[in-house]
Design a protein around this nucleic acid. Structure first.
Lengths: 343, 343
DNA sequence: ACTCATTTTCAAAGCGCTTTGGATAGAGCA
DNA sequence: TGCTCTATCCAAAGCGCTTTGAAAATGAGT
């Protein structure tokens, strides 16, 4: 059932039927009712490709999944971020499109998505420091939003981010206030922008307290459970092991906890742990009492907000750049306690 | 830059340029070279909406994210499954589209996706028992594949599934062979098809061994960490607590482990645990030695295979129904051991 | 009854591509 | 030379929608 057939059934022109369905004023209310009824009855659904061709808009937002050939790693926050965004998209009549691209072809993937007319806007996830893709998208003139930011990129762009620096600053201060001096940082991948900011916060807190950072206590890699476990076990073997550990995700925090258990250490007593908690739906930080002391910020909420900001941008391409910095809250759970007395 | 402009630059007709780029034989090899060079030089990318309109195919596969209004839960396996599928899609020139739908409108979401011409095929994830959507898709005539199966649905359909029954049968037998008699099952949501099959396997093994199932030891809910923890803690309080626990995912297994630790019990000694491991990229079951004894089957691999089967189906709609049953492997890790002697 | 303004409807063009059904030119052959 | 074949190219139609510009119908005002 297409427009032509429907309009023939109704004895009206395609123009009128189209207008009736799209809510234009220049059509009699009675006819509109008649048209809507017939459309519903025959299950008419305008072909979105044809509509897109005619309007020049596709009503689709593009995301790229970097298939990170090295690690075959899927970011665990992917699902929740996307679920948040998807809800807002559908509220506004947008669909969501994914393309897969390996590290080498990622720029090409963005370019293709937009220039083929497949999407009206793009979400850029997981920006690195000096993120090249931002300039690419800017030059292309595609509306886009970055989830995160990129140090070193000068062009203005829309972004939404957690205040990674301040949250790790606070978390580190919190540990210092508890008397910890040997504080480890199990961070995300070195070249990710968020990892750098977290490290900055961590270092600043150490500096404030007159503590000098120990490279042995600063690790970075992709945030898996196994990684958290491995680094913790490794650091516990040091002559002067950490009494507290900051870690960049709940997933790796679980690995940290496993390593502590294996070593017979009690979390929150022998070693304190603070994690960053993205508030993933399947991995809540406990029920009432938080398991881990954590810096918390819902990534699903970030997805929702990113979607809204992008839709705004598509509507008003000339608006000034919009940015949004979310403050993570520090929730105190059972994983932290005063530094143990080693003497 | 569109076809018309490009063909004008080249002094050729649109027909010839289109044919040259799409690899049709009726075009001189020299001209083809010339055309390809010009297309590359000017960054020409055929508009996919127009192409879709003309060909009647959209080269897009649709997925629906059920935004399960009750729980706001995103299935943790979502990311890896999708990453697997996406890779295969892009190999074959397909993109991937997501629509969000709440429980009430999910059928409408599928219908809309296909009848609008937005997608050429659909992946149905997380089928329940008597899954109504399968009939809907069948009636619509859209090519689709089910990740999982649905007991009670009679119409034939393509599916790919893990042999849930046999893997839980084996896992339960394994525990029985170790001398366990009080074996708990922390299952997924009751109405999910996979959960029923796992329970069937579990019950069959108990039956074989002449053990009668205890409803107190059979739990089911969405597979979060908190859920695994909660149910385990609850069961440990029973007069006759379980000595072994089967659980439906690594995520909930982590909750199980947490509860055991809190109770001062040693996993693999006091209480044995077997998990189902979807081999998620960020949650590997240990490095060399598996942490949990587990029934393992890569969900990413399933995503790849689902994608391939669906693309096959789109190519040959009249082919007989194809199904694929994957056997999970049983990997023995440190979380199981002989039943403790309670006397 | 007649004009003018407003409301309501319509025919046709256009979005950018593919594809059908020729047209043209040169090659091969008698 | 005249004819058929093949290789190469092209004009135009069509995919299903929106939108422009104009026509027809209606209503108000005199």
């Amino acid at each position: 059932m297409n427009l032509k057939q429907l309009s023939e059934i109704l004895g009206l022109s395609q123009t009128t039927v189209s207008r009736a369905l799209n809510g234009y004023p220049e059509v009699n209310e009675d006819t509109r009712m008649r048209v809507q009824a017939a459309a519903a009855k025959h299950g008419y659904r305008p072909n979105s490709r044809a509509k897109g061709l005619a309007t020049g808009r596709s009503m689709v937002i593009g995301h790229v999944i970097p298939s990170s050939s090295q690690h075959e790693m899927v970011n665990p926050i992917f699902g929740d971020f996307v679920a948040g965004a998807a809800r807002k998209y559908s509220d506004h009549g947008y669909d969501m499109m994914f393309t897969n691209a390996d590290d080498t072809s990622i720029e090409e993937a963005y370019r293709s998505l937009f220039q083929r007319g497949a999407v009206d806007g793009i979400v850029l996830q997981g920006p690195k420091v000096n993120e090249h893709r931002i300039e690419v998208l800017t030059r292309m003139g595609v509306p886009f939003i970055v989830h995160g930011r990129s140090t070193g990129v000068d062009v203005p762009y829309d972004w939404i981010d957690v205040n990674n620096k301040s949250s790790f600053l606070r978390a580190t201060r919190f540990l210092i206030d508890l008397g910890h001096r040997r504080i480890a940082l199990i961070n995300g991948l070195e070249d990710m922008d968020f990892a750098q900011r977290r490290r900055d916060g961590y270092l600043e807190a150490l500096h404030e307290a007159g503590l000098s950072p120990d490279p042995e206590l600063m690790r970075s890699a992709e945030m898996t459970e196994v990684y958290g476990h491995h680094e913790t076990r490794d650091m516990l073997r040091l002559d002067d092991p950490p009494t507290a550990i900051l870690t960049a995700s709940m997933i790796s925090a679980i690995g940290v906890r496993r390593a502590l258990n294996e070593a017979g250490l009690k979390m929150g007593k022998d070693v304190s742990v603070i994690a960053h908690d993205d508030d993933l739906s399947y991995l809540k930080n406990g029920q009432d009492v938080p398991i881990f002391t954590a810096t918390r910020s819902s990534v699903r909420r970030a997805g929702e907000m990113a979607a809204e900001m992008l839709i705004e941008r598509i509507k008003s391409p000339e608006d000034p750049v919009k940015t949004r910095l979310l403050e993570a809250e520090l929730v105190v759970g059972g994983s932290t306690g005063p530094a143990p007395n080693r003497f």
